[in-house]
């Protein structure tokens, strides 16, 4: 049987199933992006007026490089959030990754091996989370909160509570290719691959489906368990990568380096339109979220605002962004009811 066996029932009165112009989903995305882009630009302009050094090429490069670790993690977290998942253990994984990197470098292992070990170990830890979430049905929040504690402790134990310096290791992270730091290039590649995966493969559609309605996805034949395992593995791999990049940037394995990072990661992803309820969000949004976080932190210091205010400003922006999303959501559902 092919689909053409069904007699066509084209009704002249049937609407065209198409309106001109941008897709409604794209419009919704733009509603999220526009205010973020506005914040980034406005902060840039204001800070530059106050201190012209802010918008110089060198500073922009420094800003991006300083946030590459965060940026890489946000790509993984956005994938998870879209699929209705969450991983809070990334902060500790970055610490462990950094410590492991530094101690391996000090033992004289070649860079390639160190990087490979970190990536594979990260992916395996992610796979464990995925298995536990998919088959034991443990809520991701609790599970990865536990993971956060376990790996934080592990990092401290491995490093005997003090940073392990490795002045000559992993220098490639700080190196420049054509005037761009390698860390930034790596981040860009991760963004590109993440966006391809989420927005241009049918795997990505399955991720959205699992996040939007897991039961419906399962009954439609989506391999929900495998999707979850894949998401956690990808995120774990990226956390491993972020650990290496972090160690390379500071030139040491700091067992406390990733403390609190997981919250910034989630905040940036949610700023970018991802929802903790799943089924919503995009890679571009996540990147914009990181840029907002980066700009706020950096321009406040350029504006000589004490850095004790950083968290306050970020918190207010986050609450504002979520409130705006929530109200537009309510309006959208009401509109759908009217037309339906």
């Amino acid at each position: 049987m092919t689909t053409t066996d069904v007699p066509p029932e084209v009704d002249a009165a049937t609407p065209p199933l198409q309106r001109r112009g941008l897709s409604p989903l794209m419009r919704e995305h733009l509603r999220v992006y526009a205010p973020l882009a506005l914040i980034v630009v406005a902060l840039g302009v204001v800070t530059t007026v106050y201190n012209p050094a802010f918008l110089s090429g060198a500073n922009i490069g420094r800003l991006l490089a300083a946030n590459a670790v965060l940026g890489v993690l946000v790509v993984g977290q956005t994938l998870l959030l879209v699929g209705g998942q969450l991983d809070l253990s990334v902060g500790s994984l970055v610490s462990v990754g950094g410590v492991v990197t530094a101690s391996f470098v000090l033992h004289g292992l070649p860079t390639v091996v160190v990087v490979a070990v970190c990536l594979v170990a990260g992916a395996l830890i992610g796979l464990c989370w995925g298995l536990i979430v998919a088959y034991l049905k443990v809520p991701p929040f609790i599970l990865t909160l536990g993971g956060l504690a376990v790996f934080a402790s592990l990092a401290l134990t491995l490093a005997a509570s003090t940073p392990i310096p490795m002045p000559t290791g992993m220098t490639w992270v700080r190196a420049e290719v054509l005037g761009v730091r390698v860390a930034v290039i790596v981040w860009a590649l991760v963004i590109l691959l993440g966006a391809l995966l989420l927005h241009f493969t049918r795997f990505g559609r399955n991720v959205y489906a699992v996040g939007a309605n897991e039961e419906a996805a399962f009954l439609a034949g989506v391999p929900t368990a495998r999707i979850k395992m894949a998401l956690y593995s990808i995120n774990g791999l990226l956390a491993g990568l972020a650990g290496v990049m972090f160690a390379g940037r500071v030139g040491a394995g700091d067992p406390r380096g990733g403390v609190g990072l997981e919250l910034t990661v989630v905040a940036a992803a949610v700023l970018g339109g991802a929802s903790l309820a799943g089924g919503r969000g995009s890679i571009v949004g996540g990147v914009l979220g990181v840029l907002v976080v980066a700009m706020v932190t950096d321009s406040l210091s350029f504006l000589d605002v004490p850095d004790t205010y950083n968290q306050l400003v970020l918190g207010v922006i986050l609450i504002g962004a979520v409130a705006v999303t929530a109200t537009s959501e309510i309006r959208r559902i009401r509109a759908a009811r009217r037309t339906g």
Binding site: F200, T201, N206, A209, N213, A217, P223, G279
Partner: peptide
């Protein structure tokens, strides 16, 4: 509850079985 992704576009809902069957292909 068990059939639709209520907040996703109509076309994604009608493609879901196809997407599930071929996750490793490009999507447009």
């Amino acid at each position: 509850r068990e059939g639709l992704l209520l907040d996703r576009p109509i076309h994604e809902n009608s493609e879901l079985a196809g997407d599930a069957a071929h996750p490793l292909t490009w999507y447009s």
